[in-house]
Amino acid sequence: MKNFALIGAAGYIAPRHMRAIKDLGHNLSVAYDINDSVGIIDSISPHSEFFTEFERFQEFAHQLQRIPATRLDYVAICSPNYLHHPHIAAGLRLGCDVICEKPLVPTPELMDELALVEQETGKRVYNILQLRHHDAILKLRDKVAAAPADTKFDVELTYITSRGKWYMESWKGDNRKSFGVATNIGVHFYDMLHFIFGKLQSNVVHHTGTQKAAGYLEYERARVRWFLSIDANDLPAEVQGKKTTYRNIDISGEQLEFSEGFTDLHTTSYSEILAGRGYGLADARHCIETVNVIRTAKVVKGELGEVHPFVPKLVD
């Protein structure tokens, strides 16, 4: 049995980490969040210590490290994006391996900094890249690998996940903290595309705004027109008023259906990490490089055939 600490216990994704720890038979020793709306702990790990001040959490964690039976093995991080880097570094320096949500950090330079802290501490950082464990994604990857080597697939990726006014008032609506909509809601798609279609060859941005972004990516095995949005007005007419989310991935005329099968992916990710097969800094670098370019690139008018069909009608 391994002992875990959790940073960001009040976050949306934190319960999936708590359940993964419990379902795999491990122990959540201590959790931390500046917010105290963490009643979910009662149904998953009611014995866990909890702190709302990082200094008290950190001191308690250091005390746990003195005794072999209570010593922490892992720190899981579900805090806001801009805090990932300092929280990862703190977990490594505590003497723990770290499991962090994506985006790991915003820039390749911070990836390099974390690699130095890994070397200094002898501990490792693991990123949750759960789509790499989804059955539909794995089957598509096998299909692409089996296709003739000169085959390049045409992909259209559309993801609209409606968010209310609260979003822009939260840290997620502050680009200094979330690093923008493409990074915050898109990073796992860019990792998925790299995982399936290989190295990125071209990265062009056709639109960027506070609520949506679009562009063109070309990989070794695919040409991708992509569109991401949190604006309900972008939902296709056929789903408006019926659904708040629209996700569509078209691959050379075939639809990739992966709406189901997400429930246990965090548990699978944890199982792989604990078995020594987790995804580390090198695995996460490609998608961090991709979002860093998207965030800093100059918006250009797209070439014919490279522009997502939703782009011409954008007003953001």
Score class of each variant (00 low, 15 high):
222 A>M: 13
235 L>R: 01
182 A>D: 05
155 V>E: 09
121 T>W: 09
216 Y>P: 08
237 A>F: 00
190 Y>Q: 12
239 V>Q: 00
198 G>A: 13
177 K>I: 02
234 D>E: 03
125 V>K: 07
195 F>R: 04
237 A>M: 01
164 G>C: 00
198 G>N: 06
175 N>Q: 00
221 R>A: 13
208 T>P: 03
244 T>F: 11
186 G>Q: 00
210 T>R: 14
166 W>H: 04
179 F>V: 03
128 I>G: 03
199 K>E: 15
241 G>L: 06
215 G>Y: 07
156 E>R: 14
206 H>P: 05
187 V>N: 09
234 D>S: 04
209 G>P: 02
201 Q>E: 15
153 F>D: 04
218 E>M: 07
107 T>S: 14
107 T>Q: 05
237 A>W: 00
220 E>Q: 15
150 D>K: 14
226 W>L: 08
215 G>E: 05
147 A>C: 02
195 F>L: 13
238 E>H: 08
138 L>H: 10
178 S>V: 03
195 F>V: 07
116 L>F: 12
202 S>H: 15
187 V>C: 14
182 A>K: 01
169 E>I: 00
175 N>H: 01
105 V>K: 01
194 H>K: 08
186 G>N: 04
110 L>T: 08
227 F>Q: 07
173 G>S: 01
108 P>M: 03
156 E>I: 05
195 F>S: 07
239 V>H: 00
180 G>W: 02
173 G>P: 01
106 P>I: 07
194 H>S: 14
156 E>S: 13
125 V>A: 08
231 D>H: 07
235 L>M: 03
221 R>E: 09
128 I>L: 11
184 N>G: 05
184 N>C: 12
240 Q>P: 05
138 L>G: 11
121 T>Y: 03
221 R>M: 10
211 Q>L: 11
176 R>G: 04
221 R>G: 14
239 V>L: 01
187 V>Y: 07
163 R>T: 02
229 S>R: 00
185 I>G: 00
148 P>M: 04
146 A>E: 13
158 T>S: 13
126 Y>D: 06
108 P>H: 04
138 L>D: 10
231 D>P: 12
130 Q>T: 06
220 E>R: 13
136 A>R: 07
137 I>C: 15
109 E>N: 07
112 D>E: 14
194 H>V: 04
222 A>K: 08
235 L>T: 02
208 T>Y: 12
127 N>L: 10
147 A>D: 10
204 V>D: 09
133 H>G: 12
241 G>D: 05
149 A>G: 13
185 I>F: 01
219 Y>G: 11
195 F>N: 12
143 K>C: 14
110 L>V: 04
181 V>A: 05
171 W>M: 00
223 R>W: 11
125 V>T: 10
210 T>G: 13
120 E>A: 12
191 D>I: 09
204 V>K: 08
155 V>D: 06
119 Q>I: 13
226 W>P: 09
111 M>G: 06
221 R>K: 15
164 G>Y: 00
182 A>S: 12
203 N>Y: 09
118 E>C: 07
